[in-house]
Simulated assay, not measured.
Amino acid sequence: MEKNILKLKDIKKSYPVSSGILSLSKATVKAVNGVSFEVIRGETLGLVGESGCGKSTLARLLTGLESPDSGTLLFRDKEYKDWSTSQRGTMIQMVFQDPYSSLNPRQRIGSIISEGMRINKTGSTKEITKRVEELLIQVGLRPEYSKRYPHEFSGGQRQRVAIARAIAMNPDLIVCDEPVSALDVSVQAQVLNLLKNIQKEFSLSYVFISHDLSVVSHISDRVAVMYLGKIMEIAKTEDLYKNPLHPYTRILLDAVPIPDPTLQRENINIPEDMPNPISPPSGCPFNPRCPKAIDICSSSKPELVETESGHSVYCHLY
């Protein structure tokens, strides 16, 4: 059995952008700009970063909703583009951010969950119906809910339906794009625990995308920090949270609220907005906002180097 179920090498994705009154001026946004990492079978890789850093674009690349401009994307040591569409559906599934818009309001829950099974003809109608009922039980819902419509459920229940749909085809990898950000805090914990239980039961791998570092620390085995289409740092969760190396990672962690009003952190003043992705800065993309930037940071791009076992950082300071 292969150790790495997914491997990305120098993946890039750009989008053309029109500007000007007559939209005559063309520019390019590099949403994903040379991303490389691996996902080990059975692990959860957390992906964090500010809005606009390229996380969701990367999710769409992983699930085949978008195709990379260049680079190599391997699944089970075979190029992803070489798998057929039906094979991709049985290998990788996705849980979207908004449980209200990710489910077809005109379909009953049973039809939503069974769609992949019906398309791939994985069993008779009776067998598929039974499988749907089993899936609903596994995600904490009643079997009779299969006859209801999405509008009859709460946000947390809809996300459970989305998870049932994602595991229906027994995939190896599930990409979770902000799956709990639209839910109440108490419901978030329930859904996260459900994801962890399902992972153990089905030996799943997750790519868990979020801007909430406290959520990521709860569910992830390793964490990758993304900024302007680049991976700034990647390490085991415990190592990253105890010993963040990149200044950007440290700033993200310092921004996490402390649940104790008597404790205070030193405020780090940096420009609030990211640079324009249409014309990113030269050198390290974080250098205009970095409190520890040196001369070389603005003139030369660093390399993602491994400073210790399993801990890599994209920074000239190392």
Rank of each mutant, 00 (worst) to 15 (best):
E233Q: 03
E233T: 05
E233N: 05
I234C: 03
I234A: 02
I234R: 04
A235M: 12
A235P: 05
K236F: 06
K236L: 09
T237R: 09
T237M: 06
D239K: 12
D239E: 14
D239G: 06
L240G: 00
L240K: 06
Y241Q: 00
K242M: 13
K242T: 14
K242Y: 10
K242P: 03
K242E: 13
N243P: 00
N243C: 07
N243T: 14
P244I: 13
P244A: 07
P244T: 13
P244C: 11
P244E: 10
P244W: 07
L245Y: 11
L245N: 10
L245A: 11
L245R: 15
H246T: 13
H246A: 13
H246P: 14
H246K: 12
P247A: 03
P247K: 02
P247I: 04
Y248S: 02
Y248V: 14
Y248Q: 00
Y248A: 11
T249Y: 06
T249E: 08
T249G: 05
T249L: 12
T249D: 08
R250E: 06
I251H: 02
I251G: 00
L252H: 07
L253N: 06
D254K: 15
D254E: 13
A255F: 10
A255N: 07
A255K: 12
V256P: 12
V256A: 06
V256W: 05
V256G: 11
P257G: 05
P257W: 04
P259R: 09
P259T: 05
P259N: 08
D260P: 09
D260F: 08
P261G: 03
P261D: 03
T262F: 07
T262W: 04
L263I: 12
Q264E: 08
Q264R: 14
R265F: 02
R265C: 01
R265D: 00
E266Q: 06
E266P: 00
E266D: 04
N267G: 01
N267E: 15
N267M: 10
N267F: 08
I268K: 11
I268P: 02
I268Q: 12
I268M: 09
I268A: 02
N269H: 13
N269G: 00
N269Q: 13
N269E: 05
N269M: 00
N269P: 00
I270R: 09
I270N: 04
P271F: 01
P271S: 07
P271M: 01
P271W: 08
P271E: 07
E272G: 15
E272L: 15
E272Q: 13
E272F: 14
D273M: 14
D273Q: 13
